[in-house]
Simulated scan of single mutants.
Amino acid sequence: MSPGRRPERDLDLTRLGSALLAGAAWMLFGAATHAHVSSLVHWRTILVAILSLTALRIVPVALSLAGSGLRRPTVLFVGWFGPRGLPSVVFALIASEELARHPGARTSSPRSQRRSCSASSPTD
Rank of each mutant, 00 (worst) to 15 (best):
A105P: 01
A55C: 05
S2L: 14
R101L: 08
A66W: 11
S108M: 12
S96Q: 03
V61L: 06
T107Q: 10
S52M: 08
I46T: 12
P110R: 11
R84M: 11
Q113P: 00
G82W: 00
P60K: 15
P73D: 02
A92K: 12
S2I: 07
L28T: 08
R71W: 08
V75E: 01
Q113R: 13
R111F: 15
R5F: 03
W43P: 00
V78W: 04
R72I: 14
F91P: 00
H36R: 15
H34R: 15
V89M: 11
S52W: 06
R101D: 02
T14I: 13
V89T: 14
Q113V: 13
A24I: 04
G82T: 03
H34K: 11
L63Y: 09
L63C: 14
L86S: 03
G30W: 12
I50T: 05
P87M: 11
I94F: 09
E97G: 05
L16M: 05
S18R: 15
G67V: 10
F29C: 01
P87Q: 10
S120D: 00
M1D: 01
A22P: 00
H42K: 15
G17V: 06
R111G: 10
A49D: 02
L93P: 00
G104M: 11
L51D: 01
T74N: 04
T74E: 01
G69K: 15
S109K: 06
R71L: 09
P83Q: 05
M1Q: 08
T74M: 10
L56N: 02
H34M: 13
F91T: 01
R57Q: 05
W26D: 06
L93R: 13
G69T: 10
R114M: 13
M1R: 13
P83K: 09
R111C: 03
S109F: 07
L16W: 08
H36F: 12
M27A: 09
S88K: 06
D10H: 04
Q113D: 04
S116D: 03
T74Q: 12
Q113N: 07
G79F: 05
A49S: 08
S116P: 00
R57D: 00
V41A: 12
R111E: 09
S121L: 10
L53D: 04
V61K: 08
A119W: 03
G67E: 03
G17L: 13
P103W: 07
F91C: 05
T74C: 05
P87S: 07
V37M: 12
A31M: 13
R57G: 11
R106P: 02
